[in-house]
Computed example of a mutant assay.
Amino acid sequence: MLQLNTCLIRSYPNFPKKQSRSPVFFMSSPPLEAKQRLLLAAIHEFALHGYDHGTVRRICGRADVNVNAVKYYFTDKRGLYVEAVKEAHRSRHQAIANGNLFIPPDDELEMEPAVRLKAFIFQMVKMAMDAQDRTDYRHLLIFRELANPSEATQHIVQEFIRPHFERLNGILLQLLPPETPLVERRLLAFSVVGQCMHYKMAGRIIEMLVSPEEYQELTAERIAEHIYNVIQAAIWQKHQARA
Rank of each mutant, 00 (worst) to 15 (best):
Y73R: 08
M111G: 04
A84Y: 07
A224Y: 11
A220G: 12
P16V: 06
R21Y: 09
T180A: 14
K17C: 04
A88D: 01
P13N: 08
K71H: 06
G99N: 14
H226P: 03
P13M: 00
L140Y: 05
L141H: 00
S191N: 12
L117G: 05
A131F: 09
A119I: 05
R57A: 14
W236C: 05
S29Y: 02
A63K: 00
R62H: 05
K35P: 03
G79Y: 03
P30N: 12
F143L: 06
L48I: 08
E166H: 13
D107F: 10
S28D: 09
V183L: 10
E159F: 08
L48H: 04
P31D: 04
Q216T: 10
Q19A: 07
Y72M: 03
I96E: 12
I43A: 05
K126A: 13
C196L: 10
P16L: 05
P23D: 03
D76C: 11
I231D: 03
E33D: 15
S91A: 07
M124I: 00
Y228C: 06
R144P: 01
L218M: 12
A69V: 01
A243P: 03
A42G: 11
T153L: 13
I96G: 01
A119H: 15
K77P: 08
E145I: 01
H198C: 08
V24C: 06
A119E: 13
K35R: 14
F190N: 12
R144M: 01
P212M: 08
E110T: 13
P178K: 12
E166D: 13
K86D: 03
Q132A: 08
A202I: 00
A224T: 07
M27I: 02
G99Q: 10
K118I: 02
M197K: 12
A243C: 06
N5E: 08
E33Y: 04
E110W: 07
Q132D: 03
P177V: 02
L32Q: 06
K126Y: 09
I59R: 06
G79N: 08
K35I: 02
Y137P: 00
F15D: 00
M208Y: 08
L141G: 05
I235Q: 01
S91I: 07
K77F: 04
R62V: 04
R10C: 04
A241P: 02
Q240V: 10
F190S: 09
F15E: 02
N5Q: 00
A241R: 15
R58Q: 15
L218F: 12
W236M: 08
A152I: 01
V115E: 15
I206A: 07
V193A: 10
Q3A: 08
Q123L: 02
C196T: 14
L32M: 13
A220D: 14
D130T: 09
I206T: 13
S211A: 14
P212E: 05
P178V: 14
L39H: 06
H239L: 05
L109G: 04
P181K: 10
Y199R: 04
L146H: 01
N169E: 15
H164R: 13
Q94R: 10
P177L: 09
M208W: 12
G203M: 09
E207L: 02
F143I: 07
F46D: 03
C7I: 01
A241D: 11
R204N: 06
E221Y: 05
I171P: 05
L109R: 15
Y81P: 01
R162E: 13
F26W: 00
E83T: 04
K77R: 12
I43T: 07
I227A: 02
N68Q: 14
R222Q: 15
H239T: 11
A114V: 13
